[in-house]
């Protein structure tokens, strides 16, 4: 008799996503859905989708969802969670959405210690709108709006959100992981699971940044894109837990 060893999580909708081949969004969606299944919280989970490539996330999860305006997902999540603390609320945001236009919302949600979870997909570009520069774009990186490469003397260095948020005094769980290899994907799952567990336990604000690929706007094949994370992004964006409610942090 054969045994099922791999199947679609219940919380993941049985549809084809619109993501490009090699894009990390799909992987992270699956991880979030697995965590929802494993914690048995599907019936009380509400997601908040951003404006970005994952704008259609509400079609891909079998849970109730909001679609927020660009950058404001943490404010929408705050409203929902404060109104119904028994719900498990997560916001899913890209780097343009979270670190550029939505900088105020994420900083204040984190500082208030809002008890929801934020999944932050950092792919160093604005994917949806065709590859413009993001606050996370690497020095020298050519994008459609930094045609001469990001010049840090003109626009500063890429923003490291985990470091920035973990400088706030309020309690929280803040971690950075990566989706570029099977081993790192397993660690990503661990971090996201931990975040949801802490929310279920009503502990603190929880935030997981996932270094992600955008092969389309990086002009790379998927494997090359994974390599880019390893070689270019990891030295600047260290992985690890930056803050956790018991005060321990571990950086790689």
């Amino acid at each position: 008799m054969s045994k099922v060893v791999f199947k679609r999580p219940k919380a993941l909708a049985d549809v084809v996503t619109h993501y490009c081949p090699g894009c990390s969004h799909g992987i992270v969606h699956r991880i979030v859905a697995e965590c929802i299944d494993e914690l048995g919280i599907q019936e009380r989970t509400v997601g908040v989708a951003p404006v970005g490539c994952s704008v259609l996330a509400y079609n891909y999860f079998n849970v109730d969802f909001f679609e927020a305006s660009h950058g404001r997902a943490p404010a929408v999540a705050t409203g929902a969670k404060r109104a119904r603390p028994d719900l498990i609320v997560f916001a899913y945001q890209g780097d343009g959405d979270l670190a550029s236009i939505g900088m105020a919302e994420i900083v204040h949600a984190c500082n208030r210690g809002e008890k929801f979870t934020v999944i932050f997909i950092n792919n160093t570009v604005y994917g949806m709108t065709g590859g413009q520069m993001a606050p996370t774009t690497m020095p020298g990186q050519v994008t459609t709006t930094s045609p001469y490469g990001r010049d840090v003397n003109q626009i500063g260095w890429p923003i490291r959100m985990c470091e920035l948020l973990s400088s706030l005094k309020t309690d929280g769980f803040i971690a950075r992981t990566s989706a570029h290899s099977p081993a790192e994907i397993i660690k990503t799952k661990k971090a996201i699971k931990k975040a949801f567990e802490l929310q279920v336990a009503n502990r603190c604000f929880t935030f997981v940044e996932v270094l992600s690929t955008c092969p389309t706007n990086w002009g790379m094949m998927p494997i090359q894109a994974q390599k880019r994370i390893e070689e270019e992004l990891l030295p600047y964006y260290p992985l690890g837990v930056f803050k956790s409610p018991n005060g321990d942090a571990s950086k790689s």
Partner: peptide, 19 residues
């Protein structure tokens, strides 16, 4: 400005030309 479809070619063009 800030990117948004369907006007992205304006900032993209000017990011090349204005410098």
């Amino acid at each position: 400005g800030y990117p948004i479809t369907p006007q992205n070619e304006i900032p993209e063009y000017l990011s090349r030309r204005l410098p």
